[in-house]
């Protein structure tokens, strides 16, 4: 077996990674166009138009992925849009610090995860809303109350809702790694870049996250695993 990095790099090449559908070079061209316009001392109106054009093109290229990731944390359309905007604002403020030694979108994911985590932290510091102050079991029970025939097999939408609620109860670092792997289909190497941790950490965290998710699911809904 090769080294960890060799294995991961090989894996990235072998597995038809969806991340590679994105052209990193195109991002680079747009970013450089933005920076050139921003730093130009020529006509300010032209510079502004150039900057806005590059900014919007980058946003359009990535907004869907960032929004989906952020929505996984916020669960609220308005909050998700607000946090997604914040992600892009931070991205453009930090553009000069990106060294292009990794994929642009993994860096963007990192900013998105950190921004979403910050949002979660702020939300926790807010006074607890009545609707938030209930346990996992109570929330799952609420979901089950919506099921018209409790003995009937769970519908796909009900299974999905239960799954999402259990996912929400996991520690944030477990949830992030599961999101990036299962929903964004990132490779271990990309997850490591997005979360700023090692490949070994990604692997063990992913395993523990899945194990914890399975334990909760088995305790309450073993039929979902059959």
């Amino acid at each position: 077996m090769g080294s960890e990095r060799e294995r991961a790099e090989d894996g990235t090449e072998e597995r038809g990674n969806p991340g590679l559908e994105y052209d990193n070079n195109e991002d680079r061209v747009l970013v450089e166009r933005f920076i050139r316009a921003r730093d130009a001392s020529a006509d300010p109106a032209t510079a502004e138009r150039e900057m806005e054009s590059a900014f919007r093109m980058i946003v359009v290229r990535h907004q869907e992925r960032v929004h989906r990731l952020v929505h996984g944390y916020t669960k609220d359309p308005l909050e998700a849009e607000d946090v997604t905007q914040e992600v892009f604002v931070k991205l453009f403020r930090k553009l000069d610090s990106f060294q292009w030694d990794s994929a642009f979108y993994t860096w963007l994911y990192r900013i998105a995860v950190n921004t979403a985590m910050d949002w979660m932290g702020k939300r926790k510091r807010r006074p607890v809303q009545l609707s938030e102050d209930i346990t996992l079991h109570e929330r799952i029970d609420q979901t089950l109350e919506l099921v018209e025939e409790p003995d009937a097999p769970l519908l796909q939408s009900e299974r999905a809702e239960i799954t999402r609620r259990i996912l929400d109860e996991l520690p944030e670092q477990y949830r992030s790694v599961l999101y990036l792997r299962e929903y964004e289909d990132l490779s271990y190497l990309e997850i490591a870049a997005a979360l700023g941790c090692s490949l070994g950490t990604v692997e063990s965290r992913l395993f523990r996250a899945r194990a914890q998710f399975r334990r909760i699911l088995e305790a309450r809904f073993p039929e979902l695993l059959q």
Partner: peptide, 22 residues
């Protein structure tokens, strides 16, 4: 599979998101 089946597609961002972000 259970996890992937629960993947949620949020409602798309409103028209003009890029302009609002700018």
């Amino acid at each position: 599979g259970v996890l992937r089946d629960a993947r949620e597609e949020p409602a798309p961002l409103g028209v003009g998101f890029a302009e609002r972000a700018w």
